[in-house]
Structure formats: C-alpha cells, structure tokens
C-alpha cells in the first residue's frame, strides 16, 4: 500500500529529529537543565501525529517560595513520569504502522 510506504519513509526521516531531541535531552539532564529537558520532551511529543501523542501532566510552575525550593525536584519527577510516555508512544506508533504494513 502506497500510503504505508510513505509512512515507513517518514519514520526514517522523523527518527533523525527524534535522535537530535534525545541527544539534547541526555545532555540537559546530565547538566541538571531540567527546563530544557522538558522542552525537548514536548518537541518529541509534537512530532507524533495528534492521535498518537501521549498526554502529559501539567508542567511544574512557581507561585510561591516553597515551590521555588522544590522546583528542581518537581521538574525531575515530571521528567521521570512523562519522558517514558513519549518514548512509549513513538515505539507504539512505529510498531502499529509496521503491523498495518504487514496486514497489507
């Protein structure tokens, strides 16, 4: 099926961008730049078609002093929960497209 051929080709193209985001994500986390890591995670999510996108929790924000103290911790918690979500969605999307291709 022609459409699925195109999707397979698109997956290859998109893999490059995802890898770029992943490299940025790893670098940002290694340097405790969680704000950038959250941004890259959102970028990875946005690349998926709308129906395949995961739903993220609300991004941590600061409204009072206590939030500021706990900010880094809350950002890490957010990444720990939501980053695997986007990786899972990408994998599932590629698998389901492959399954559809096998279905003919």
């Amino acid at each position: 099926m022609y459409v699925l051929e195109v999707i397979s080709f698109m997956i290859e193209i998109m893999a490059n961008a995802w890898n770029q985001y992943r490299q940025g994500l790893v670098y940002a986390i290694q340097h405790s730049d969680f704000s950038s890591a959250i941004l890259y995670t959102h970028g990875m999510q946005a690349m998926l078609p709308e129906s395949a996108q995961p739903k993220f929790d609300a991004i941590p924000t600061i409204s009072q002093l206590v939030d500021d103290i706990m900010y880094k911790r809350r950002q890490w918690d957010w990444l720990f929960t939501n980053m695997p979500k986007v990786e899972r969605s990408i994998s599932l999307w590629i698998h389901s497209n492959w399954d559809r291709k096998r279905l003919g």
Binding site: S91, L92, H95, S96, W98, D99, R102, L103
Partner: peptide
C-alpha cells in the same frame, strides 16, 4: 491455521 499480528509491540 494462519495468524496475523494485532500488535507486535
């Protein structure tokens, strides 16, 4: 029999 994938994931 024959089988087809629902989800290889």
């Amino acid at each position: 029999y024959f089988r087809l994938p629902i989800s290889t994931y």
